[in-house]
Amino acid sequence: MSAAHDIPRRRPLLRAALPAAGLLPLVLWQIVFFVVPVALIFGVSVWRTQSYRLIPAFTFDNYIAIFARPAIWRALLLSVETAAFVTVACAVLAFPVAYFIAKKAGRWRGLLLVAVIAPFWISIVMRVAAWRLLLGERGVINQVAMTLGLTDAPMSFLLYSPVSTAIGLIYAYLPLYVLPLYAAISNIHDNWIEAALDLNASPARTFFEVILPLSAPGLVVGAVFCFVFGLGEFVTPALLGGGKQLMFSQVIQDEFQRRLDWPSGAAMAVVLLVLVFAALALSMKWIRRASGETGL
């Protein structure tokens, strides 16, 4: 801000126009390709279809129909449960690694952090393909378990079940959870941990009364992203979950693309969005704190 005022004022028109010109293309782009599509989903959700044709109307029938179909309820419940389970599992699995990288890895911390995130950049379809090789009835895990004599028959529940979906989702979102946890734990001064230990707190007490509360911003932010992404994820349940117990995202896709009932699918998408917004709104305070806006 000071830079803008200290420099001698030449060509005031240009100076005033530049910021707007810099921001405008991106803002317009996001309005057309992000805001409008979302608005369209809301709009279509109150329309009707008649013999596969969209009819502009204003009706809440689509929403009422969602709550009347138990299959959709079950899918929604399964999605929420799975996302919640995946979130908790990711938190528990990610915490020790985030602590290790932040506090114990020394000069390797940068490289270790990059190594955690690297698999996240690989196309989701390829990652899921790899998990099919691992989890299948003749997959790597079953073969190894049988060779070691852990089981006699292949474990068939590993693939095409909510278990495999959960494994795939944990794998996909673990890196996302390590990042905010790492940031939060790095901000904990070693002095505070030392002080607790000097005052004769046990390691467990130090963990529960100093480290854990101070990593809360990272825990919450990671949880929100994990939950939100897990709730809407489509590829993993579609390829690992089998077709018996559908997740909400699969039902939405099916409604849109196979049954071609856009209004009904759009109404379900709105329900999904409401859940996502609720999760974000509940944690907004923590997201602000983690991004350093208000400090601690």
Binding site: V27, F34, E233, W262
Partner: peptide
């Protein structure tokens, strides 16, 4: 508001963005 607009696609489920774009 601008930041919300710019960062919105990150938290929006890809499925919803995809379907919205199909309608668009």
């Amino acid at each position: 508001l601008v930041l919300c607009l710019v960062l919105g696609p990150v938290v929006l489920p890809q499925l919803v963005l995809g379907l919205g774009l199909v309608v668009l």
